[in-house]
Design a protein around this nucleic acid. Structure first.
Lengths: 218, 218
DNA sequence: TTATGATGGAATTTCGAAATTTTCAGAGTT
DNA sequence: AACTCTGAAAATTTCGAAATTCCATCATAA
C-alpha cells in the first residue's frame, strides 16, 4: 500500500469524524511532520480532498476545513435523498435475495448497536462503531444499484454531509427516532415498495432540511 | 493565477474534448516537458482529475484515460438526467425573470450555432464553439437551483459524460434532433411546467441510455 | 516453440531545499 | 485609540534529483 492512499484515507476519515474544527486551517507543514513525509505528498492528498469538497483550497493561502453552514447541510441532504432514494429503488429492482440478505445483516448490526447505545451511560466508546455501522447500512441500501458512478457520487456527498454534521449533531439525541426510521426503511425495501422506500429515506433525513417556515419565520 | 489551476483547467478541457484517446496512458513525464513545470506539479493535477474520475490512477502504474464503455455512458447519463431534471425544476421554482432571460439567451446562442452547423459543409471549425454553447445551455438550466453542491456535482458528471462520448459521438449526426430537443426543453421551462421539463430533459438524453431491449436482444 | 529469467531504459514516487508569499506582532504616526 | 508600516517568522509553492518500480526486449533453457 502506498503512502499517498494511506494518508488520503486517514485524513478523509479524520475530516468526517471530529479530527478538525470547522473553518480551521489545515497546515500542510504540520501534517508533514505528523505523517513523517514530505510537503509534496501532503499537498497531493489535500488537493484530492479539495476536489471532493472535504477541504477548501485558496491560492497561496493553503487549505482549510469548510465552515459549518445550515444552507450547505440542506443542500447535501437534498442531494443525499436524491441519490440514495434512486439507488435504493434500483437495488430493489435488481438486487435479488443476495442484496436482501446483506441489507438485513447490515440493519441487524446497526440496530443492535443502537439498542445498546440507547441504554448506555457513556456513549463515547460507541460513537466510532455507530458511525461505521450507519454508513455501512446506507451504503448497502444502494449497493445493488448497478452503477459505480452513482455509488461514487453518493459517497462523496455522504462524506461532506457527515463532515458538516459531526460537531453539531449529537448522535444520541435522535437514537430512538433513528431506530424507527431505519426499521421503516428496511421494511419498505424488503417489501419491494419503491415509492414507500423513497418516502422513508426522505423522512429519515428530513430534519436536516430547511423548511420554508424556517427560512421565513413569521 | 497559479500554475496548478491553469494546468488543471487545461487538462480537464483536453480530457473532455478530443485531446486524449480512451485508455491511453497519461505520462506525467511528457506533460512535465510540455507544460515546462516539475513532475510534482503535474502529479498534483492528475490526482485532482482522478478524484473526479476524469483519469484513473493505479499505484506505481501512473494515470490513464478511462476506457470508453456503453455501461458507463449509461450510468453517467442516468445521473445527468437525475441531477439536471432536479436542478432545472428548482430553477423553475425560484429562478424568476432573470433566470428566464439568461436561459433564453443561452438557447438563442446555441440554436443559432446549430442552424449554421446544419448547413455548413465543414463542421470542424464549429465543434469547439458548439461544445461551449451546449454546455452553457445545460449549465444555465440548473444555474438558479440555489445549490452549489448540486451544480458542482452536475459539473463533475457532465465532464465525465462528455469525455466518454467525445470520440464516438459525432455531434452533427444528431443536430436536427438536438435542435428540436433544446427547443422543447426551453419551451417547457419557460411555461413553468416542471414535470414536462423533466420529461424533455430525459428524452433529450435517452438515446445514450441502454434499454432492456439492447441488454437482452431477443 | 514456449516458458522463464535477466537486463537496461523509462516512468513512478518521494524527498529536501530554494524561492515566493502570507501572516503577525510591534513600532511609529496621525 | 486607530491606522499604517516594517521586518521577522511561518507557510506556501515549485523545483530538480535520488530512489524505487515497472516494462519491453532479449537471452537462455526446457
Amino acid at each position: 500500500m502506498s503512502y499517498d492512499t494511506d494518508i488520503f484515507n486517514a485524513l478523509r476519515h479524520r475530516l468526517m469524524t471530529n479530527g478538525f474544527e470547522h473553518g480551521q486551517k489545515v497546515r500542510a507543514e504540520h501534517l508533514r511532520l505528523e505523517f513523517g513525509c514530505s510537503a509534496s505528498t501532503i499537498r497531493e492528498v489535500l488537493f484530492r480532498l479539495s476536489t471532493i469538497g472535504l477541504v477548501e483550497f485558496r491560492e497561496q493561502r493553503g487549505f482549510r476545513v469548510p465552515e459549518q453552514s445550515r444552507a450547505l447541510i440542506h443542500e447535501l441532504t437534498h442531494l443525499r435523498v436524491l441519490l440514495e432514494a434512486e439507488g435504493t429503488a434500483m437495488s430493489i429492482r435488481r438486487g435479488g435475495v443476495a442484496w436482501e440478505a446483506r441489507l438485513t445483516a447490515a440493519h441487524h448490526q446497526l440496530s443492535h448497536l443502537e439498542m445498546r447505545l440507547q441504554s448506555a451511560r457513556d456513549t463515547a466508546p460507541f460513537v466510532d462503531l455507530w458511525f461505521d455501522a450507519e454508513r455501512h447500512f446506507h451504503e448497502t441500501l444502494i449497493s445493488a444499484c448497478g452503477s459505480d458512478a452513482l455509488r461514487d457520487t453518493h459517497q462523496q456527498i455522504y462524506c461532506r454531509f457527515r463532515q458538516q454534521l459531526m460537531i453539531e449533531d449529537r448522535a444520541f439525541d435522535f437514537i430512538s427516532e433513528n431506530i424507527r426510521h431505519h426499521q421503516q426503511i428496511l421494511d419498505a425495501a424488503m417489501a419491494g415498495d419503491e415509492a414507500l422506500t423513497r418516502q422513508k429515506i426522505h423522512d429519515h433525513l428530513a430534519r436536516h432540511l430547511i423548511t420554508d417556515a424556517q427560512v421565513e419565520p413569521a
